[in-house]
Design a protein around this nucleic acid. Structure first.
Lengths: 143, 143
DNA sequence: ATTGATGCAAACAATTTGCAAGAGG
DNA sequence: CCTCTTGCAAATTGTTTGCATCAAT
């Protein structure tokens, strides 16, 4: 809840843009919109009547990523997507049609990933797996 | 071997840029550089004294992707990467440090992916899994 | 000949950076 | 106050598009 303290713990000054961005992610946590692009964040803040620049959003998100507050994903859309980092590892299932994202975790897959990587001289970094698919949900605007 | 025939089979005219690009991918097939960016392809062709534009490379690669000759991947680097499509499904292990790419396949992971996706109302599209990691090889220029 | 393909330059989209002005500790 | 941060505009990077020219059938 206390964003100011959380920011200071990371070594970042508690400035207005940072507080608002952190707040935004925490408000949207656990709903379907927890994955946001820089543009999404920017627009949300403008809608809340904040005077902020897109460049600042990018800078803050990059800083948040560096201190581990958020994670950046690329997915296959050309634009980066950010989500609050809550420590628990999970993978992503991304609909190539509507962009919908679902999270999942499977410990057997996890184990095999690690083994496969290790056998090949790689060290897996956190949150490493993306699964691209087409969702068959009614609300998916499939072509 | 016969690039002309292969191109015609896809419905694409056998033009010089297309032949050279297809040839380039086939020459580099099965070596570590089978994954190339548009820029990589462009530079290779310039080095071979070909007079070609980067825009043409992008257009040809997009056409090749549409007819299934190559596949496009995004990986987390900001630039798209292309590889020859040889039909056999495989996943990718990508080093976030040096960009090195290795391929792998694990049928147990495959089975679980499909089940997980289906349970959530998704239909997996081909070549869906990327694994991001840091390679621990001596030649990796880790920071 | 006709239609499609190319090269070049300009247009775009996402992201980054330089810099003068402003705010946090 | 002194430094770090912001907003804006301009710069970068990867990719796409418009258009006049050129090549494949």
């Amino acid at each position: 809840m206390d964003h100011i303290k959380d920011l200071k713990n990371t070594g970042l000054k508690a400035t207005a843009p940072r507080l608002r961005i952190l707040d935004l992610f925490r408000k949207h946590d656990s709903d379907k919109n927890r994955h946001m692009t820089a543009e999404d964040v920017y627009r949300h803040l403008l809608a809340e009547n904040m005077d902020i620049g897109l460049a600042t959003v990018y800078r803050v998100l990059t800083q948040f990523e560096q201190v581990g507050l958020v994670q950046r994903h690329y997915f296959e859309s050309g634009k980066a997507v950010f989500e609050l980092n809550e420590g628990h590892h999970h993978d992503h299932l991304v609909c190539l049609q509507c962009g919908k994202v679902e999270e999942f975790h499977d410990s057997e897959i996890e184990k095999r990933q690690i083994r496969i990587a290790r056998e090949r001289g790689f060290e897996i970094s956190a949150h490493a797996l993306y699964l691209y698919a087409n969702c068959t949900k009614a609300n998916c605007p499939e072509k």
